[in-house]
Amino acid sequence: MIPVQFGYRRASSVDEALALLAEHGDDAKLLAGGHSLLPLMKLRLAAPEVLVDIAPVEELHHVRIDGEDVVIGALARYHDLQGDEVLREHAPLLAHVAGVVGDQQVRHRGTIGGSIAHADPAADLPAAILASDAVLVARGQEGERRIPAADFFLGPFTTSLTPEELLTEIRVPRQTGLGWGFEKFTRRAIDWAIVGVAVSGKRVGLINMGGTPVRASAAEEALARGASVAEAAELAAEGTSPPDEPHATTEYRRHLARVLTARALETSAGSR
């Protein structure tokens, strides 16, 4: 399968990428690792006229501490993140999740920023950054703005980024010493999660339980009231609207969310 014709452009700095986006507007898509976009283009579900390859942008590969936050460059690859010592200490949930996305080959190419900007509700990283209470930094022609993760995801494959903006950084409040847990249920090893659960401290993010990654608010509130893991997990699917598909019905997904939340919360309690 070969994608529809497009023009390939390369940006070696954020400013260059923004200039190319301003020039081509809606017709352009950013290409980072390409492991979400290229498969869609090969299936002809996406057909941008221009691809702006931002992989050469060197300024967005970092993981560093800035005050109370861990700051992750949007172009950091899963493979870099899974072994990153700073991340493992201060945001261990994200380091773990980066290590279970796709497979070895995918993790050599895929980037955290690419996954978040792509906003697939079945993807692992978006729910993990919700559970990490992250703030996303976007840059456009008018400057920089910070978007809380809770306001970032608007729908399936839809975010609050404008076509002229570039996601540059993910800022995560340090989760040092907090308990964390992650569970995903897949049909085969490398599949997307039918349902997944990411826990950091008392926050619970859900994968594939709606059109966007969502927080399990009812379960979180129960935990805050001092409820047991079992009691809180019973509420994990409250307020969610998971998709109904032949291989996984809505009710089945609700059941999975409860079971996986219990497991992730238990892991979290044991990891403190």
Partner: peptide, 26 residues
């Protein structure tokens, strides 16, 4: 041809990648 089977795996700068999901331009 969908990033699943790994038959097209090669090393790019020494690391395994699925070459059906990388552009020659990249």
């Amino acid at each position: 041809d969908t990033t699943s089977c790994g038959a097209c795996t090669v090393l790019l700068d020494g690391e395994s990648v699925k070459s059906c999901t990388v552009l020659a331009a990249q």
